[in-house]
Computed example of a mutant assay.
Amino acid sequence: MLKDKICVVTGGAQGIGRCIVETFASNDAKMVFACDMNAAVMAELESQYTNVRAVELNVCDRSSIANFVEKVKAEFGHIDVLVNNAGITRDNLIDKMTEDDWDLVSDVNLKGVFNMTQAIAPVMMECGAGSIISMSSVVGTDGNVGQSNYAATKGGVIAMTKGWSKEFARKGAKVRANCIAPGFIETPMTVDLPEKILDYMKKKTPLQRMGTPEDIAEGALFLASERSSFITGQTLKIDGGLVI
């Protein structure tokens, strides 16, 4: 599905990001750059796949991003897929949320997506095609108690994506921009939640289970491939019916 494509996935060391890297690599991508700050974990991916390359990268470091993109462009000449997956949470009720927690989540989840897209979208536009997939959340579409910072960033990602779908397709370039909004997924970010909360979320979800990283990765694979060539500016909810 991704034959000859050069893919970049941020937050690629674990959870959803790692699963996306593995899924892309298993579906004939020419090279998948797994970008994360946890280089040790990503080294395992390189040992398992000949078409995966681990890159230690901070999505808040604009100069490092620029250097990375230039190296990829020099080696391969194009970047076909960008998955903006890197994200963090610092949850609290608004009267207890610190400015640092607001700023950190905003820098990684919103500005980080902007940074990566600003660096890579021009490469795609020069080549005339590309797919940008950014991770939002059902919290970004419908909100949640104690997640003002997270909700704001994930809602902002959707808004940016809608604008990008128009901006990047100008002058005939087939550069698409879409979001995925996961529901409650079994990842390192949810593993520490109390069992009572997990059971509640399963019961609240019509399909009566938590999602898996594979559920999200399959959605990303579809949006990255030519099978979604007429889809742009959309938010694909993969949430088991949690938000209808």
Rank of each mutant, 00 (worst) to 15 (best):
K3I: 12
C7P: 03
V8P: 00
V9F: 00
T10A: 02
R18L: 00
R18W: 00
T23H: 01
T23C: 11
A29Q: 04
A29P: 08
K30V: 01
M31W: 04
D36Q: 04
N38K: 13
A40N: 12
E44S: 14
R53M: 13
C60V: 05
R62E: 14
F68S: 00
E70N: 07
K73V: 07
A74T: 13
E75N: 10
F76P: 00
H78N: 12
V83L: 12
I88K: 01
I88V: 15
D103Y: 09
D103S: 12
V113E: 01
V113C: 15
F114Q: 13
M116A: 09
M116D: 03
A119I: 06
I120D: 01
I120C: 04
E126H: 13
C127E: 10
I133W: 05
M135V: 07
M135G: 04
S136G: 09
S137I: 07
V138Q: 03
T141E: 15
D142F: 09
N144W: 13
N144K: 14
G146Y: 06
G146R: 10
T153Y: 04
T153A: 15
I158K: 10
A159H: 09
A159Q: 13
K166F: 03
A169W: 05
G172F: 08
V175F: 04
R176Y: 01
R176Q: 07
A177L: 10
A181P: 05
F184A: 08
I185L: 11
I185E: 07
E186M: 08
P188N: 11
V191D: 10
E195I: 07
K203W: 04
T205N: 10
T205F: 05
L207Y: 08
M210S: 03
G211N: 10
D215L: 08
A217P: 10
G219H: 03
L223W: 03
E226G: 15
S228A: 15
S229C: 10
T232Y: 02
T235D: 11
K237S: 11
D239W: 03
L242G: 04
I244D: 06
